[in-house]
Amino acid sequence: MSPDRLIYMANQIGKYFESQHRQNAVDGIADHLRKFWDPSMRRTISAYAKNGGEGLDPVVLQAVRALSGVGPT
């Protein structure tokens, strides 16, 4: 699936969780992706994040890396 579309969707999710004061945004984003994204979508975005993740908002990039087992940088 096209990374561009996934990047857009992930950043949308990121904006919501960034606004939630009582929840860690990285955890919230990662949890959302685990619960609602098909594994192939997660694999695609994780692979994209491993290659730099350009276009992903910083907090989203952290979440995607956490999702794939790559620690935040």
Partner: peptide, 18 residues
């Protein structure tokens, strides 16, 4: 135990060929 594709995801995946 993993979530599947939503309708728009299915269509995106179809366009991509998977």
């Amino acid at each position: 135990a993993e979530p599947g594709l939503r309708i728009p995801n299915m269509l995106d995946a179809a366009v991509d060929g998977s």
